[in-house]
């Protein structure tokens, strides 16, 4: 009995100390250091037009038509629809199986939509991402959209190609992960070019 009580007492003390130290002290110290040295990143890499790490919808939330051919588009789910309603956007993936009838239908609708604006879409442009809020597309995904964007904006294909290669980043240290374009930054650069 005495050992049981001693164990309970030890547990209670340890729980309090661990919660304070490994929960709050650790996280508050981390927040302090981050805010001191990397404030921009720690606050979410936010600029006037949005965060370079969170996707935006450039398509007017349509899944059957491309409504705004004057912009480069991200992946179809790059901005959760909830965001439009002013509720904080929740990250989520579609989680459809590789032999899902629903996935087949969704992708088919997007392929048709892209063909209508003269684009033969890459995989990324018709499939959803893991986070549901990714801001990135691959350089190839941007390149296939050039005919559409060029026609809608009047900017020549050659200048758009140069723009894409200028905005390409990623593959840290040359080999980690893949090369990608942040759609927001690409479209900001495009808007500057048109002015």
């Amino acid at each position: 009995m005495a050992t049981a009580l001693l164990n309970i007492r030890r547990s209670l003390v340890a729980m309090v100390v661990f919660t304070v130290f490994f929960g709050f002290v650790y996280m508050f110290a981390g927040t302090g250091v981050s805010q001191l040295f990397f404030r921009h990143q720690a606050d979410g890499s936010v600029s006037a037009e949005g965060s370079t790490l969170i996707g935006q919808n450039w398509n007017g939330y349509s899944t059957t038509r491309i409504l705004h051919p004057q912009w480069f588009h991200g992946r179809p789910d790059s901005d959760d629809p909830l965001v439009a309603t002013g509720k904080p956007g929740e990250s989520a993936s579609a989680n459809l199986a590789p032999r899902s009838e629903e996935l087949l239908q969704d992708v088919h609708a997007l392929v048709v939509a892209w063909h209508k604006v003269g684009v033969d879409p890459t995989t990324d442009l018709v499939t959803t991402s893991g986070s549901g809020i990714t801001p990135d597309i691959s350089p190839a995904d941007a390149l296939v959209q050039i005919p559409m964007v060029s026609k809608a904006t009047g900017v020549s294909a050659a200048r758009l190609r140069a723009l894409i290669s200028h905005e390409t980043r990623g593959a840290e240290l040359g080999f980690l992960g893949s090369r990608y374009v942040v759609v927001l930054q690409l479209n900001e650069a495009l808007a500057k070019l048109e002015k």
Partner: peptide, 28 residues
């Protein structure tokens, strides 16, 4: 964090993109 992870206790942030008219409330 130096690579871009968020570390703040300040709650959500709301941004409005004038290019496409999208308003986002982003959880942090």
């Amino acid at each position: 964090v130096s690579q871009g992870a968020v570390m703040t206790l300040a709650g959500t942030v709301t941004v409005h993109d004038s290019l496409n008219g999208v308003t986002q409330t982003i959880p942090r």
